[in-house]
Design a binder for these strands. Structure first.
Lengths: 254, 254
DNA sequence: CGCTGTGTTGACAGGTCTCAATATAAGTGG
DNA sequence: CCACTTATATTGAGACCTGTCAACACAGCG
């Protein structure tokens, strides 16, 4: 839907304003660009970790595989996201990254990420904030999985996607087009595909969300928000403390 | 149990070796020390975020409160942990931090964290890795909550605590003493206290884990590990790429 | 010693899963 | 463009896991 922008700094400028130089610096991170077909695995759980990926175009899911063949999707990635970075702390990758649409990613070496800390402290800080943000999102998911019903989880999931798509595209309306199957949505919400179907069908009958094949139209946003049992997170867009502390010592020349 | 160490760098030296200077630099982060009684709230969800906390002594739980009075514990904190940092991305704190034992914390301003990026890139990188590590842990929790039964979740929880306590104290044996009630454990695993009780009792009868009041002795570690359905995470202790990329550009003098 | 919090156990209800069949859409090759 | 195959969605019936409610036992603590 959005055009390919190789230097799209999306997630890097959610918390600080980037200078033109910094945007260029970001572009330097990018390694070889890789195209992946729908359904293909970008990196499988258990493999060793040499790089992370920036998602340039398409949708990718990050999942943990369990012994009984079940799987839990831990994140649905949209363009601009950094993929696979939690595993930089591990000997063997935790997540399997799977393209669910045709995908374009750029490979970024771990060293390039590491060098940000010495050469581009503001970018490193931006990345850090972005990772903390992901942590909040995971915390909300845990609350949703641990303490709510099927309909609440589905409401929370739809709202989360709505909120994210709206950040990426301010023109995003109440209709979400998502290349996810009901089985995918089950793997996200910890439900079976059968029960996802029943519950979404109920949303539809109740006039809460119009559920069509890979398209959802939120009909009653406040009601859905209330049902989800989670607050709408207000991100600190340009926190004063961050800007101030990064300005304290200028970036060393070169 | 462990003596109070105000400069305990625990989480900061999990991924890189800190120099003596860096350990001192860390000590400078510490703000006023605060003692908190058992049961007291350190920071409540919804409050504005001016600081984070370093846990010096005692146990703290981090929880999300849901509308129906339910709550989900998202993290059990041990000494050395940084508390409340995900909320640095938010206008209003997501988590409520509650002392479940008498606690000593040190308050650290957000600016102090921010300044790490310009003044101490290696510490910033260490912090970054630590946050990514937390993300892996949250991902594992999500898989556990979304795709496993009560006994599997409890197994995963006990093993997680065992693994963490062992990192902190290499002499840690198979007996875990934990100041958590069964209701707490329910709030962690997304179960009711009643069902936690039944399941732990079953562990005890099966000779899997000896469950006593606030004390657990793992009797069959491999069996418990297998039951949990999660791999034991192998953290990248001193990743070569990290050391190398941080050495690339020396830290600017002062 | 009584109070309060925590642990334990039973009976029952309810939400979600499992299994299975069918419908519908999408994709493929002729 | 059609026939065929495959993936996905839909619906029903029954089983199972976990929650709810309630009562009681036990421990810690003032």
């Amino acid at each position: 839907m959005t055009s390919i922008d190789f230097f799209s700094p999306h997630r890097f400028c959610e918390f600080i304003e980037l200078t033109a130089d910094e945007r260029e610096g970001l572009a330097l991170l990018h390694g070889p660009v890789m195209r992946v077909e729908r359904g293909q695995v970008i990196r499988r759980s258990g493999e060793s970790v040499h790089e992370v990926f920036f998602l340039i175009d398409g949708w990718v899911i990050s999942s943990l595989d369990l012994p009984e063949g079940e799987r839990q999707i831990v994140k649905v990635h949209l363009p601009g996201d950094m993929l696979g970075s939690p595993s930089m702390t591990l000997e063997a990758a935790a997540e399997t990254l799977t393209a669910i649409t045709p995908v374009v990613v750029s490979r970024v070496s771990l060293s390039a990420i590491g060098r940000l800390f010495t050469t581009a402290p503001r970018l490193a800080a931006a990345l850090f904030m972005s990772v903390q943000q992901e942590r909040v999102i995971l915390m909300d998911r845990i609350a949703s999985l641990g303490r709510s019903t099927a309909s609440q989880r589905l409401a929370a999931f739809l709202l989360h996607m709505y909120d994210r798509m709206r950040v990426r595209d301010p023109a995003q309306g109440l209709t979400l087009s998502m290349p996810l199957t009901q089985e995918n949505i089950g793997d996200i919400t910890g439900l079976t595909a059968v029960h996802v179907n029943r519950t979404l069908r109920q949303f539809d009958e109740d006039g809460l969300v119009l559920c069509r094949r890979q398209s959802f139209t939120i009909l009653d946003l406040p009601k859905l928000r209330k049902l989800s049992a989670l607050p709408e997170r207000q991100w600190a867009r340009r926190p004063a403390w961050l800007e101030a502390s990064l300005a304290a010592v200028p970036v060393p020349a070169e």
